[in-house]
């Protein structure tokens, strides 16, 4: 499995880093990292677990999608606005769902 560094802007998260269960972060990628990593202007879902982190594309395009998810799912997302700089090493990169 290819491992990469993810660099972008954190725009939302669900769950807490302080618990043992996985939590999810939504990151907007602003530069081109293909072919090794994600594409410019893509949005990734990063699943963080104690033993590993994985990243995959999601088809979202911005904050609207977080607004909509917040209406439809539980637990709620924490919307991070304005976004914060995000950097995470050693992430398993699986761009497409299997």
């Amino acid at each position: 499995m290819k491992k990469i560094t993810i660099s972008g802007i954190l725009i939302g998260k669900r769950g807490s880093e302080n618990t043992k269960t996985a939590f999810i972060e939504i990151v907007h990628i602003q530069k081109e990292y293909r072919p090794e990593g994600p594409a410019e202007n893509s949005i990734l879902e990063i699943t963080r677990q104690a033993e590993k982190s994985t990243a995959t594309y999601i088809p979202w395009v911005g904050y609207f999608d977080l607004d909509r998810e917040n209406k439809n799912v539980s637990p709620k997302w924490e919307i991070i606005e304005p976004g914060k700089k995000y950097l995470l090493d050693n992430v398993e990169w699986t761009p497409f769902q299997q």
Partner: peptide
């Protein structure tokens, strides 16, 4: 199929 980025193109990577 996925292709290079084009300004205003939303899903060029998918």
């Amino acid at each position: 199929a996925p292709h290079e980025h084009i300004t205003e193109h939303l899903h060029d990577h998918l």
